[in-house]
């Protein structure tokens, strides 16, 4: 396998240039996928035979929850890369992804509450899946607070990397909470080994939304990372050239 791209990530300028080229394509993909998925899910997918139309909340709840967990795994991977290879960009990625992950967790919890009210009769229950997701939100808050409260950049990067790596133990707990404990929450919609239990006209728009949310995450992450790179490299001549070009 060719690892040149990994070594090139050591150069902030290379990252800045390549991400600038990817950004328009990712934005278009995210906008198209989210628009198609939303219209399909809201207007064209058939209603659920038990839950009626409230099940349409699934088209944001599940993608947001999947993304919230993937984002935390990304934080841990960035933490390992930062600790092992001392790559500066890994800390940039970790710091910039944490707020987006926190927002996605918030969306998953909120849409879950709004969906729970008509379905279970309660906004919130101290159920294993819900509690584990709430812990994920607090882990994100922890990473964000830690990153901002330590003024030495290298120490902050190390502390956040360690917290991200330790906290990743919560991810399998979220994933298997619906199997390990008796919960109100329904089991996974998508499994790698089986076909979804719902008909194609229901899960195809959901899959489109999941991919759309990933593209959206990539767009927002790159936007944040590019700004952070500019700030950290503000003394480099290419950054000054970039600032002057923006005038």
């Amino acid at each position: 396998m060719n690892w040149t791209w990994f070594h090139k990530l050591g150069s902030p300028k290379w990252f800045y240039d390549i991400s600038g080229r990817w950004l328009p394509w990712l934005s278009v993909a995210a906008a198209l996928l989210l628009a198609v998925g939303t219209v399909w899910g809201l207007a064209f997918a058939p209603p659920d035979y038990q839950q009626g139309n409230s099940f349409r909340i699934i088209y944001i709840h599940v993608p947001a929850a999947i993304l919230a967990q993937s984002c935390y795994i990304m934080l841990a991977v960035a933490g390992v890369v930062g600790l092992v290879w001392k790559m500066k960009l890994a800390d940039v990625a970790l710091q910039c992804a944490a707020p987006i992950g926190a927002w996605m967790t918030f969306v998953a919890l909120l849409t879950g509450a709004v969906w729970g009210k008509p379905t279970w009769g309660a906004w919130w229950v101290w159920d294993a899946r819900l509690t584990a997701m709430l812990i994920l939100l607090f882990l994100y808050f922890g990473v964000i607070a830690l990153g901002q409260s330590i003024s030495n950049r290298d120490s902050a990067a190390k502390a956040c990397a360690v917290l991200a790596i330790v906290g990743v133990v919560n991810i399998p707990i979220i994933k298997y909470s619906v199997d390990w404990w008796n919960t109100l929450h329904q089991p996974a919609t998508f499994k790698v080994t089986e076909k979804p239990a719902m008909p194609a006209e229901m899960w195809v728009p959901l899959l489109i939304m999941v991919i759309g949310f990933y593209c959206f995450f990539a767009v927002v992450l790159l936007l944040r990372m590019r700004l952070e790179v500019l700030k950290r490299e503000s003394r480099a001549s290419w950054v000054k050239a970039e600032v002057e070009r923006s005038l």
Binding site: I57, H61, L110, T111, V114, K117, P118
Partner: peptide
Amino acid sequence: LYVWTAYGIS
């Protein structure tokens, strides 16, 4: 109300 609240806030 539920569906539009969820979509609106998201």
